[in-house]
Simulated assay, not measured.
Amino acid sequence: MDIFPTELGILTCLGLLAASLWIPYIAGAASANLPADAPDGFTRIANPLLHKPWVQRAYRAHLNLLEQLVPFALLVLLVDRVNGFSALTYWTAIAFFWLRVAHAVGYITGWAGFPIRPIIFTLGWVCCLLMGYAVFAARLA
């Protein structure tokens, strides 16, 4: 029986988070006041900047997660490919997951303004760098 590494489990959870983070945006967009001549219930305000502030933040939180998830996922899969999982990758994956949860919740609710939100995002970037380091370290070992 193969052991499923924690890093791949975290990657699965991040994928589920990214697949679900559209829900707050759509819930907020659906509650927007549409013009009386809107053709159907699926009409959305085209410009996200015309939504309520929390709906705009939900839109950006989803995009920000996708911006960091793609490189992080690629790096985790490369670490898996080179058999480079270690204590570093274990804790980096866990930290990245909770940073992304904190970023999304903080962004949507508005409690993580400047400088908290940029710091969280930057720490996520550092996690990507650490995973990249793990790829090279495994290849050199």
Score class of each variant (00 low, 15 high):
residue 5 P to I: 08
residue 54 W to S: 13
residue 130 L to F: 02
residue 44 R to M: 15
residue 13 C to Q: 06
residue 47 N to P: 05
residue 11 L to R: 01
residue 87 A to T: 15
residue 71 P to D: 12
residue 42 F to R: 15
residue 112 A to W: 09
residue 28 G to Q: 07
residue 123 L to M: 11
residue 108 I to W: 08
residue 50 L to F: 11
residue 87 A to R: 13
residue 99 L to C: 11
residue 27 A to Y: 10
residue 35 P to M: 03
residue 64 N to A: 11
residue 129 L to Y: 12
residue 116 I to R: 08
residue 106 G to E: 14
residue 135 V to M: 02
residue 22 W to A: 05
residue 112 A to Y: 08
residue 81 R to G: 11
residue 92 T to R: 00
residue 35 P to A: 03
residue 104 A to G: 13
residue 89 T to I: 01
residue 11 L to G: 00
residue 7 E to S: 10
residue 76 V to N: 00
residue 62 H to C: 10
residue 69 L to I: 12
residue 38 A to N: 07
residue 23 I to P: 08
residue 54 W to P: 02
residue 78 L to T: 06
residue 138 A to F: 05
residue 141 A to R: 13
residue 21 L to V: 09
residue 126 V to K: 01
residue 31 S to N: 13
residue 3 I to R: 12
residue 77 L to R: 07
residue 128 C to K: 04
residue 78 L to G: 02
residue 51 H to P: 06
residue 121 F to P: 09
residue 93 A to T: 00
residue 123 L to G: 01
residue 100 R to N: 13
residue 111 W to H: 12
residue 4 F to L: 14
residue 123 L to W: 01
residue 13 C to H: 04
residue 62 H to R: 11
residue 16 L to G: 08
residue 15 G to F: 11
residue 121 F to D: 12
residue 138 A to P: 01
residue 27 A to P: 00
residue 91 W to Y: 15
residue 79 V to L: 04
residue 129 L to D: 07
residue 6 T to V: 14
residue 126 V to L: 10
residue 18 A to K: 00
residue 131 M to A: 07
residue 121 F to N: 12
residue 85 F to H: 14
residue 65 L to C: 11
residue 116 I to D: 03
residue 48 P to C: 07
residue 106 G to L: 11
residue 83 N to E: 12
residue 127 C to V: 09
